[in-house]
């Protein structure tokens, strides 16, 4: 399995090299929009030193962590997901059914998106600097990393569930942007939202928890919510796997 993944990564790199200009531009735009978020954050905190107990550095930690999760998802899975939608809609999965590999993981990991690696490394570097100023304890630092991994899993599962819906409904491609919108809106301190919204997105669809929990570990405010986000992410992954199996059966019968 690891060897196959190595080949897939090599192929992604080769494809990236075919579209060098696109790669550079995509990376630049990633940086550009991150910079806009930084400037906007700077504007907010020019009027007040803290918002719900978050100072500017805590806030930077939050949005950078949220970006880190989303770029990691993009680097690892987004190209595979984009390809998968096309494959499902074009009815081109027959060969996947015939190969002695797990088709769920094969398609999820089919491509990595190298342009996002540039922005991922950049946000990773910045987050490193921020964490070095926040001084989390070793345990909190470790749990920060765990929370980021859970976050990547959560974003992956949400997108996988959305993408696999293409087996049943066509013309839904516009909906594929929803998880991204959700995560963008969640890259803020949970407390700024009204109580109902907070409860909904901390507990039911815990997207706010996904971004807020690692940030809290970063500035030494550990929270048990991590257990909940890990549990929900696990459940979502299982759901997406079952959905995939069902989708293949549906694909076969519509052949």
């Amino acid at each position: 399995m690891l060897k196959i993944y190595r080949v897939l990564v090599t192929q992604s790199l080769a494809e990236t090299m075919t579209y060098r200009v696109t790669t550079v531009l995509t990376a630049l735009f990633g940086v550009l929009f991150y910079a806009i978020e930084l400037i906007t954050g700077g504007v907010y905190f020019s009027f007040t030193p803290t918002i719900y107990g978050w100072n500017f550095l805590d806030y930077l930690n939050l949005i950078t962590t949220a970006n880190l999760i989303s770029y990691a998802y993009q680097f690892l899975f987004v190209a595979g997901h984009e390809d998968l939608v096309d494959q499902i809609l074009d009815g081109n999965l027959d060969y996947s059914l015939l190969r002695p590999v797990n088709s769920y993981w094969f398609h999820a990991c089919y491509r990595v998106d190298f342009p996002s690696l540039v922005t991922l490394l950049l946000t990773g570097g910045i987050e490193g600097v921020i964490l070095s100023k926040l001084h989390p304890t070793p345990l909190n630092l470790f749990l920060y990393l765990v929370a980021v991994l859970v976050g990547i899993g959560f974003v992956f599962a949400l997108n996988q569930i959305m993408v696999t819906l293409a087996f049943w409904v066509d013309g839904l491609s516009a909906l594929n942007g929803l998880p991204e919108d959700l995560m963008d809106a969640s890259a803020r301190p949970a407390k700024i939202y009204p109580r109902v919204i907070q409860q909904l997105f901390l507990w039911v669809i815990p997207s706010l928890a996904i971004t807020n929990v690692p940030a809290q570990f970063g500035h030494n405010q550990p929270t048990w919510l991590l257990l909940w986000t890990a549990l929900v992410t696990g459940v979502l992954l299982v759901i997406s796997y079952i959905e995939w199996q069902r989708g293949l059966l549906k694909y076969v019968s519509a052949n």
Binding site: I4, R6, V7, T10, Q11, A14, E15, R99
Partner: peptide
């Protein structure tokens, strides 16, 4: 977008 060899190498691993 890739030469056939790349697909074949993937199949070699699969």
């Amino acid at each position: 977008d890739l030469p056939p060899l790349d697909t074949l190498v993937l199949l070699r691993e699969i």
